[in-house]
Amino acid sequence: MAVTGLTALLAAAVGLGSAAGAKAVAAVAAGQLSIGWCNDRLDLQRDRAAGRRDKPLAVRAVRPGTVGTAACVALLLCIPLSLACGVLAGSLHLGCVAAGWSYNVWLKRTVLSWLPYAVAFGLLPAFLTLTLPGRPWPPLWLIVAAALLGTSAHCANVLPDIEEDIAGGVLGLPHRAGRRGTVALAAILALASCVVLTLGLPGPATPLRVGLIGVTLALCLLAVAGAHAPVRGRLPFIAVLAMAGVDTALLVLAGNAHTPGQVWP
Results as ranks from 00 to 15, higher is better:
residue 3 V to R: 06
residue 4 T to E: 00
residue 4 T to Q: 08
residue 5 G to D: 05
residue 6 L to H: 06
residue 7 T to L: 07
residue 17 G to T: 03
residue 20 A to T: 13
residue 22 A to F: 00
residue 22 A to S: 15
residue 22 A to D: 15
residue 23 K to E: 14
residue 24 A to V: 03
residue 31 G to W: 01
residue 31 G to D: 11
residue 31 G to L: 03
residue 31 G to N: 10
residue 32 Q to R: 08
residue 35 I to L: 08
residue 39 N to Y: 08
residue 39 N to K: 04
residue 41 R to C: 08
residue 42 L to Y: 12
residue 44 L to G: 09
residue 51 G to S: 02
residue 53 R to N: 09
residue 54 D to H: 11
residue 55 K to I: 09
residue 56 P to I: 07
residue 59 V to Q: 11
residue 61 A to T: 13
residue 62 V to S: 13
residue 66 T to V: 15
residue 68 G to P: 13
residue 69 T to V: 15
residue 70 A to Y: 14
residue 70 A to P: 10
residue 73 V to C: 13
residue 75 L to F: 14
residue 75 L to G: 14
residue 77 L to M: 12
residue 82 S to P: 07
residue 83 L to C: 06
residue 84 A to D: 13
residue 85 C to Q: 12
residue 88 L to C: 08
residue 92 L to H: 05
residue 94 L to E: 06
residue 96 C to P: 02
residue 100 G to E: 05
residue 103 Y to R: 04
residue 104 N to W: 04
residue 104 N to R: 07
residue 106 W to R: 15
residue 107 L to F: 06
residue 107 L to P: 03
residue 110 T to N: 02
residue 111 V to I: 14
residue 112 L to Y: 07
residue 113 S to Q: 03
residue 115 L to S: 03
residue 116 P to C: 05
residue 117 Y to S: 11
residue 119 V to A: 08
residue 119 V to C: 00
residue 122 G to V: 06
residue 123 L to H: 08
residue 127 F to W: 13
residue 129 T to C: 04
residue 129 T to F: 00
residue 129 T to W: 11
residue 130 L to E: 07
residue 134 G to L: 05
residue 135 R to H: 15
residue 139 P to Q: 02
residue 142 L to W: 00
residue 142 L to E: 04
residue 144 V to L: 09
residue 144 V to H: 01
residue 146 A to H: 05
residue 148 L to M: 00
residue 148 L to W: 01
residue 150 G to N: 01
residue 155 C to Q: 06
residue 156 A to G: 06
residue 161 D to T: 04
residue 163 E to L: 13
residue 167 A to V: 13
residue 170 V to A: 04
residue 170 V to E: 04
residue 170 V to Q: 11
residue 170 V to L: 12
residue 171 L to E: 05
residue 177 A to E: 07
residue 181 G to Q: 03
residue 182 T to L: 11
residue 183 V to Q: 01
residue 183 V to H: 02
residue 187 A to Q: 00
residue 189 L to W: 01
residue 189 L to H: 01
residue 189 L to E: 03
residue 191 L to M: 05
residue 193 S to G: 14
residue 193 S to W: 02
residue 194 C to T: 13
residue 195 V to T: 10
residue 203 G to L: 01
residue 204 P to S: 11
residue 207 P to T: 14
residue 208 L to F: 14
residue 209 R to W: 05
residue 212 L to I: 13
residue 213 I to K: 13
residue 218 A to M: 13
residue 219 L to Q: 04
residue 220 C to H: 05
residue 220 C to I: 01
residue 221 L to P: 07
residue 223 A to L: 08
residue 225 A to T: 12
residue 228 H to G: 05
residue 230 P to F: 10
residue 233 G to W: 01
residue 237 F to A: 10
residue 238 I to L: 14
residue 239 A to D: 06
residue 244 A to V: 05
residue 244 A to Y: 05
residue 245 G to A: 03
residue 250 L to Q: 00
residue 250 L to N: 08
residue 251 L to P: 09
residue 254 A to S: 07
residue 256 N to Y: 15
residue 257 A to H: 09
residue 259 T to F: 06
residue 259 T to Q: 14
residue 260 P to E: 05
residue 265 P to I: 14
